[in-house]
Design a protein around this nucleic acid. Structure first.
Lengths: 217, 217
DNA sequence: CTCATGTGTCTACGATGTAGACAGGAGCTA
DNA sequence: TAGCTCCTGTCTACATCGTAGACACATGAG
């Protein structure tokens, strides 16, 4: 039980019987995936990890697919879209959104593919989309075009996060990276040594924004 | 390595000697994934489907991860990089590569995430990378910058294919798409009706190419 | 002929996703 | 208070899975 500093004179909480919740289970599932990897995750381990019966999760989610939908939603919530720069130029808003999405996903490398492999249709995600399109519309971009821009940025960002996560997680497994001087040290290996894994991401976002700028004017 | 664009879902003929092969098993696994989905795929079903013992696959692949590496390699082979326009401007080469990669992946919607969730390190893939960078270098682009461009395009293309595949496959599952006139018919729904799922892809590739063009000159 | 080697088969084990029956407590109604 | 009905967590059952390991058979070398 956590320390609970409470102002004097307020009634203490009644003894609460710990109860499961969809949200709590989703967050716990994410934590479990973070800790041991997606491969090792199972419904039963989740139930056990939160201190209940292995089968308890099925009272709240129909199946694993539904649970993973919840995990994706939990990830999206972590982006904290409310604190995005909604009042600046739309380009800044879009860029910041991409960076936040990437950072959030890379904080959970084992869970990136859970997020990437389902269309997030949660209300908060839809609301964010509506807000974005409204904002861009106010800045003079037709909704259809704004949606195209948003889709490009989203797909690039998710594709990027997936590539980074997958590369980092599988790094130890046969990293037959050619060393300088070896016969395999070709132009590719040389270029790879001259770049980091992710120093192209912000350039890519900029390129997309600038590329669309042209057709938006 | 023969380019063999094959209609998804049909089992290929086994090699005339009734002997198993790594490559044959990979292609058969892809066909099985195409036909019944990744979720339903199993090692044992693959062995049975090719007419051997359920456990036969393990003679050729250490585990499922290794098999899926082979499936990703089979997908890459299907791109048939040899027939790309290697002699034209590098922008045309890059664009055509993206389109081919997308088409190949979308021909196997159930297998896209197999491809997207592992770093392809097969020799043919590395050779292609080397060839690309050499080509761009000949056109005056430093290898490090060329690698950044290639990574952006690759991540965007894979992210796009993944999003499209996932959306199409999960389309029947609660497609609560608001209809015009309903209270939910917001600017997002309107914009979605004014676009197709993928009409932004070529625009995105163009935007990235044009965006990098600026820093390449 | 003998024997090692490669290739396919078979058995075994623990774990998994999911369905369904079961149990106990909370709260409502009479 | 007595009874009833949900809600929620527990427990059992079943087919299937990934994987390890022993086994069998055919082939080619010596």
């Amino acid at each position: 039980m956590t320390a609970d500093p409470r102002s004097p004179g307020t009634l203490p909480e009644p003894p609460t019987r710990p109860t499961l919740t969809r949200e709590y289970l989703a967050v716990a599932a994410l934590a479990l995936i973070d800790a041991h990897g997606l491969r090792k995750f199972s419904m039963r381990k989740l139930g056990t990890a939160v201190g209940f019966d292995p089968m308890a999760v099925y009272r709240y989610y129909d199946d694993q697919e539904a649970l993973f939908d919840g995990v994706a939603e939990a990830l999206f919530t972590e982006i904290d879209v409310d604190t995005l720069p909604w009042d600046g130029p739309w380009q800044d808003l879009a860029r910041e959104y991409c960076l936040r999405l990437r950072d959030t996903l890379l904080r959970h490398p084992h869970a990136v593919q859970v997020f990437a492999t389902r269309p997030v249709r949660s209300p908060v995600s839809i609301d964010t989309g509506v807000k974005m399109l409204t904002k861009l519309h106010a800045d003079g971009i037709a909704p259809a075009q704004a949606l195209r821009i948003a889709r490009c940025l989203r797909e690039f960002t998710i594709g990027h996060a997936l590539a980074i996560a997958v590369t980092r997680l599988g790094a130890e497994r046969r990293s037959r990276k050619p060393r300088p001087g070896s016969p395999d040290y070709n132009v590719l290996a040389e270029a790879a040594d001259a770049t980091t894994l992710d120093d192209h991401f912000e350039m890519g976002v900029t390129a997309i924004l600038r590329g669309f700028q042209h057709s938006a004017d």
